[in-house]
């Protein structure tokens, strides 16, 4: 029987305070295995960026331990830096350089040998769809391209752990889609990836585990499926398009009982949409749909309003999931 591989990134009881009173990060623990994505979610000011900066060796932790590929950050900072790629939220680019020169410069800084530098730059530019812009000034690139170039920079020394701080903020939908493709590819290559974001749809379907931060604390962390199940057991928000049968549907909802927490009506083309928040997860939804159909309500569409990740976040933030 084989023992499971140790996680590439292991964070235990991480703490940070900038002024000795307010904790930017307090007792945060999580681990990330190779080939998986850990989503660090939470509102602005939750401590996500502070956590990532400590992981990237930019800020000295106030307490706790950080291990990357078995190396303790406090003891072998240089070794950790060789294994970690960090992309800040502003991408940190040299506007006057070209993408190929930018990658070459950071490859040199990481001590990548000369023959390998050009090969890696070409490969990364191709993988991230930037080959056509390889000799354009970085200032002329779109925000999506700048973000992909930033990711290419973090990969130039072939790290094992990737830290991305709000990579999708202010990107258009096409660029976000491209980012998802890139991240999925990196995950398949076996990188351990930590992404911080407060835009949950960007991470839905991509992250394997989630850590929800609020006020510097990790209020919930674990495999996303497990948390999602428990969250959905607690509360689920569904959208029901009921066409013209609004009144009939309203009567069914009135009779549905205490499992119905909240109802909101919104007019749409050709009828009405009802948003319901239910206790009891999928079973409660099935019961409600059955009741509506039996009372002659024609349902045009039944869909969850939010992704599993959003449900987890909402439930955790409201304290519905212990």
């Amino acid at each position: 029987m084989s023992t499971p591989a140790p996680p590439l990134l292991d964070v235990q009881h991480l703490c940070l305070s900038y002024d000795g009173v307010r904790d930017a990060v307090k007792d945060v623990s999580f681990s990330v295995a190779a080939g998986s994505i850990f989503a660090l979610v939470g509102p602005n000011g939750a401590g996500k960026t502070s956590t990532l900066r400590m992981l990237a060796t930019l800020t000295e932790p106030g307490g706790g331990t950080l291990r990357v590929d078995g190396l303790d950050v406090a003891r072998d900072r240089e070794g950790v830096r060789r294994r970690v790629g960090y992309l800040p939220d502003n991408f940190a680019l040299y506007d006057q350089m070209t993408p190929v020169d930018y990658l070459d410069f950071f490859a040199r800084c990481h001590g990548v040998p000369a023959p390998e530098r050009a090969r890696r730059a070409d490969r990364l530019l191709e993988e991230l769809d930037l080959t056509q812009k390889r000799s354009s000034p970085i200032r002329a690139l779109s925000r999506g391209m700048r973000q992909r170039l930033g990711i290419a920079k973090t990969l130039v020394h072939e790290p094992k752990v990737l830290l991305l701080d709000e990579p999708a903020s202010a990107l258009d939908p096409a660029a976000r889609g491209k980012l998802r493709e890139v991240l999925a590819g990196l995950k398949r290559r076996g990188l351990a990836i930590v992404i911080s974001s407060h835009i949950l749809p960007d991470l839905a379907g991509l992250a394997d585990a989630v850590g929800i931060m609020e006020g510097g604390r990790m209020i919930r962390a674990g495999a996303i499926d497990a948390i999602a199940r428990s969250a959905q057991q607690a509360r689920t928000v569904y959208c029901l398009d009921v066409g013209a049968h609004v009144d009939r549907a309203a009567r069914v909802l009135d009779d549905f009982g205490p499992r119905l927490v909240r109802v909101e009506h919104a007019p749409i083309d050709g009828g009405a949409r009802i948003e319901v928040e239910l206790l009891g997860g999928d079973e409660a939804v099935a019961d409600l749909v059955e009741a509506l159909v039996l009372r002659g309500v024609r349902l045009h569409r039944v869909a969850p309003r939010e992704s599993a990740l959003e449900a987890v976040y909402r439930a955790s933030a409201s304290g519905a999931v212990a």
Partner: peptide, 14 residues
């Protein structure tokens, strides 16, 4: 200003 100094600090350069 650009944040690139922090990026340089994440490289193995002392």
């Amino acid at each position: 200003r650009a944040g690139t100094l922090d990026q340089l600090r994440t490289t193995p350069l002392s």
